[in-house]
Simulated scan of single mutants.
Amino acid sequence: MTQRTELATVRDRLAVDELVTEYAAAVDDGDWEAYRGLFTPEGRADYRSAGGIEGSAREVAGWLAEHLEAFPVRQHLIVNRRVRFGVREQDTGDTARVRADYVAPMGRTGRDGGPAEPDLVCGGRYAFALLRTDDGWRLSEVVVREKWRRPPGPPTAPVIG
C-alpha cells in the first residue's frame, strides 16, 4: 500500500466513524431532519427486532419521532465498531459495512427537571451499510438487532430452588 492509499483509508475510516456518531446523536436529540440527511435517497432502516418498522429513512424517522416521544431523555452509545470497506469485484472502495454494538438507556424527564432515571435500557447490534456519494459517505441501510431489553421497574430476583 502506498502512503497516499493509506492516508485515504484513514480519512475514509474517520468519515465513516463520524457518520455513525452523527446517527446516534440524531436519534438521541430527536433531530429527524438530520437523521434523514444521513441516508442516501434510497436509504432504508429496519427496526423490526426492536418492535419497530422497516422502511425508507423518511418513514422510519416518522415512526421513531412518534414512538420515542415518550422517552425525551436518550443517550445511546455505539461501541465496538468494526469497519470493512468494499471488497467485491469492481468495487472501487465506495462501499463500507459497519457492525457495532449499542446500549440505549432511555428515560422520561427527571423530577423537578433533574436527571432522569432510565425507564428502559436495551442493547444489541447495528449493521450499517454505507455508500460514498458526491456529498460524502451516507447510510444506504441500517438494521437493528436488539438482543436484550430491561423494562421499567426493579429487577426481579432469580427463583432458586
Rank of each mutant, 00 (worst) to 15 (best):
R149F: 09
T133S: 10
R108I: 08
G52P: 00
L64V: 01
Y102A: 05
A65W: 04
H76L: 05
V142K: 03
G55F: 01
D134S: 11
L77W: 09
R44K: 13
D31M: 10
D94H: 13
G51A: 08
L19D: 00
A104H: 10
F39R: 06
F39T: 08
Q75V: 07
G37T: 08
F128R: 00
N80R: 07
K147R: 15
D28P: 03
A26I: 07
L139V: 09
H76A: 04
N80Q: 11
P118F: 05
P118N: 11
E66P: 00
R132F: 06
A116Q: 02
F128D: 04
T156P: 06
L38F: 08
L131W: 03
T21C: 13
E117Q: 15
R145V: 13
T9Y: 07
A104I: 07
A25E: 14
V159N: 12
A15Q: 12
E141L: 15
K147L: 15
L38S: 10
V73D: 03
V143R: 14
W63C: 02
E141C: 10
Y126R: 00
D135W: 06
R99V: 14
G124V: 07
L64K: 04
L68I: 01
Q3M: 11
L131A: 12
E69C: 00
A129D: 15
W137Q: 06
G51P: 04
E18C: 04
R150D: 10
L64A: 02
L130Q: 01
R82N: 08
D31I: 11
C122N: 14
S49M: 12
T156C: 13
T5F: 07
R108V: 10
G37W: 03
T133E: 09
G113F: 05
Y47T: 03
T5V: 10
Q75W: 08
R4V: 09
L68N: 01
V27G: 01
E18Y: 02
A129N: 10
P152I: 15
T21M: 15
L38K: 10
P105W: 07
H76I: 01
G107T: 08
R88F: 10
Y126E: 01
L120T: 02
R132G: 05
V27H: 06
G123Q: 06
V60A: 05
Y102D: 04
P158R: 12
A127R: 13
A61W: 04
